[in-house]
Amino acid sequence: MLRRSLALTAVVVAVAWSASGLEVGIDRLVRAPGDAWAVFRQMVPPAFGQAIDRNVPSKVLESVHIAWIGTMIGAVLSFPLAFLAAGNVAPAAVRAPIRQLFNVIRAVPELILAVILIPVTGLGPWAGALAIGIHSVGTLGKWATEAIEGVDGGPLEAVSATGGRWVSGMRWGVLPQVLPVVTSHWLFRFEINVRASAVLGMIGAGGVGAELVSQLVFRNFAAAGAVLLMTIVVVLAIDTASAAVRRRIIRGAAVTVGDDSDDRNAAALADLTGLGRPPLG
């Protein structure tokens, strides 16, 4: 009971300190909802004509392309590394540095990577794709490592019993077990990356973000509303389609891999959010 009240006090103090630090006067707090509502009102109805004239649909698609290429870069770079980071198949000396690499990469947001990359690669979608690709290596690598650590050791033993080398063990003992889970990780990451690439455009790394910023800067809220709505539709469509495919991949895997594979896949997916629950559905 004492611990609980201590924790509660700590939260209250932290929040009070934070709120006072933001220097928000009562008048601003009262006025803000009205201001936000005024902007929202001007967004409706959205000016789709203007947005189409300015090629916004192709910008939205560009964001999708950036996200896809970024995901592919992340997948290609992270998957082989994951085999060297998994506790059950890699020696400890190799494992530790690669895991740390994943951790460090994960800690740097795409936007910060883009800030660093843009001066070197120049403005444009390639900077965005590269930033997303590098950042994805961190998460995809971690997830794939966990998937590999969750495999059934039987097939791996069978390969080594017949005299197979390490590579054959990975190819025939591990890969078939983890491929469905890892593919669904890639798709999940793609969903996240679509949002990330839309945001990256705001600092000049290609895609729809730049369009939203310029419409808002000119206070052309009707056009901004159209940009926003097009982005939302595409993001929702991709989320829905990708979630359906992921579910299909995991269920399909349950039939081909074995009896307990459903549990195993779920367990391998479990730590995606760091919360011990699969991101399905």
Partner: peptide, 12 residues
């Protein structure tokens, strides 16, 4: 959820 976080920030 479909609106990216920084889009919210820019809007606000």
């Amino acid at each position: 959820r479909a609106v990216p976080d920084l889009f919210w920030a820019k809007l606000l």
